[in-house]
Amino acid sequence: MSAVLEVKNLSFVYGKGTPFEKKAVDNLSLSVEKGEFIGVIGHTGSGKSTLVQMLNGLIKPSEGQVLLDGRDIWSEPKKIRQVRFRVGMVFQYPEYQLFEDTVYKDIAFGAANKGLTGAALDAAVRGAARFTGLRDDLLEKSPFDLSGGEKRRAAIAGVMAMEPEVLILDEPTAGLDPMGREILLSQIVNYHKERGNTILLVSHSMEDIARVADRILVMNHARLHAFDTTERVFAQGASLDAIGLRVPQVTRIMQLLRQRGVDVPESILTVDEALSVLSALLKKEGKIW
């Protein structure tokens, strides 16, 4: 394993030299391994969005470096566009960025900018459409005729089609219905499994993060609060409570059971896990069989 993204002493200050000056990211260092699935959590205004926008060069850090495969992305400012193809970024509510006359063309926009043409472009577009579950007949429609969820998936496909090595998703499931969330999340997981690339998922839903992330990056007041495996971060319920975040509901229930002396592991992350642990326990005690 090698670090694909590395961040060294990164800081960003908004409105430098004005009365509105505000530190959004403060002296942050971390490194992300190739193929990892990282969950990014933190309060609104904790600096998550600023951090991820610096990772693909959309905003330039006030101090510090972002290294992609060991090279500072700002070493050649003229080539910053190349970085954006390698580190794909899906913003919040990405459906508002659709503009082409067909879904196909819109998905192809980024990939064509990257320089793909002909069969390679077609393969990239259809591949991305397949990952996000857009049927072939939708591709020839106008993006403005799609439903909300379909628009969202088309916009995400537009970034996936650039075949980035690192994909950053800023709250991709916000505002979708429970079914839509579930589907989109498993599509992202499948994409990650098949492509084996690196994913950073910013989310407010601890349940989503618990299900998919290998490691969790916790931001608090512009600083890195924690960056550790999902189990270990969610085992620290009290520490998360202190900064106004919470662990997934099922994890909390299991932690409370543990406090009352029930013999369950400290960090259960999903309902399925909890179910198997609890039924094993009940079987052992002979309450069910």
């Binding site: 566009r81 954006r84 899906v90 960025q97 926009f109």
Partner: peptide
């Protein structure tokens, strides 16, 4: 501003 960022992320020049 947001749209510019989003399209730049898709390589708009």
């Amino acid at each position: 501003d947001k749209l510019m960022q989003a399209q730049k992320a898709r390589g708009a020049d």
